[in-house]
């Protein structure tokens, strides 16, 4: 009994409580305002769709997850070196940064069909779409992380006759880690969106494709079920990065839990 109490009162349970409350409100709203099922389905209909279509949803979500991870991986692979160049070279910064911001304002959904024309219906257009959305937040936060190293830290390293590599490895890189991680978290959730955008415009697999089909058939319960699965992908990936962050930078203020530093 007390164990159950402990589990139910655990802070980790709080979002779940909120979800339960929202579900109840959703159900009540439908009954109260007599919202017809072709506008918003009742929660239990969505749950039924989840149950009935589970194998298919799992299969399609693996496809989307791979595309997301591919795009996210590329974002890291290109984003962090790009950020380093921008952070350490005024010239690169002045040439590249404005262009990057400019490219960011191009709506990805508008150019996504182009990738389908170029690369066909496979995984590649989705990966590219995920990459295009995931890239920018990583660059911005990584640049910020490296640029926020205090001049005193650099003075300290210089006074110890540290080489540039030593200064980078022992001071700049660890210092930038928290910023890099916050960029990674934003990036991974956007990469999911990117992958789905890719699936929307031209694909025959993935959760985005399921959404498209369900939309076409006015199958609202399936559409909502697909949305639930999609958010679950986002949450799982986000939590995975969060855990990695806890392991890699346990010293950072955001990871210290209830311990408070003395001034």
């Amino acid at each position: 009994m007390s164990l159950l109490r402990k589990i139910l009162l655990n802070p980790a349970m709080r979002p779940i409580w909120l979800i339960v409350v929202l579900l109840v409100l959703w159900d009540l709203a439908i009954r109260l305002f007599k919202i017809p099922p072709y506008l918003i389905p009742a929660p239990q209909k969505v749950v039924e769709a989840l149950q009935n279509e589970w194998p298919r949803l799992v299969k399609e979500s693996t496809v989307t997850t791979w595309a997301t991870l591919g795009g996210f991986g590329l974002s890291i692979l290109f984003g962090i070196p790009m950020a380093l160049l921008i952070a350490y070279s005024r010239t690169v910064e002045s040439f590249v940064y404005p262009l990057l911001v400019f490219s960011q304002s191009v709506p990805k959904i508008a150019i996504a069909p182009l990738f389908v024309v170029w690369f066909g219906f496979g995984i590649i257009p989705k990966v590219i779409a995920a990459f295009l959305l995931g890239f920018f937040p990583i660059v911005v936060s990584t640049v910020m992380g490296f640029k926020s190293v205090e001049p005193e830290m650099i003075d300290l390293a210089r006074s110890m006759k540290a080489s540039r590599l030593q200064t980078f490895m022992r001071i700049s890189l660890p210092h930038a880690m928290p910023a890099i991680f916050s960029g990674l978290k934003v990036s991974v959730t956007l990469a999911v969106v990117g992958a789905v955008v890719g699936e929307f415009v031209g694909s025959n697999s993935g959760i985005g494709y399921v959404l498209q089909i369900a939309n076409g058939n006015f199958d609202l319960p399936l559409m909502f079920a697909a949305l639930v699965v999609l958010s679950m992908i986002g949450v799982v990936l986000f939590v995975a990065i969060d855990l990695l962050e806890r392991v890699m930078i346990p010293w950072h203020a955001s990871q210290r839990g209830d311990v408070h530093a003395t001034p």
């Binding site: 205090e150 830290m153 003075d155 300290l156 660890p174 210092h175 880690m177 930078i249 010293w251 950072h252």
Partner: peptide, 13 residues
């Protein structure tokens, strides 16, 4: 040379 700066400049990690 050893330097003590005005602020401690310790590495948090």
């Amino acid at each position: 040379v050893g330097i003590v700066f005005q602020s401690p400049v310790l590495l948090a990690w």
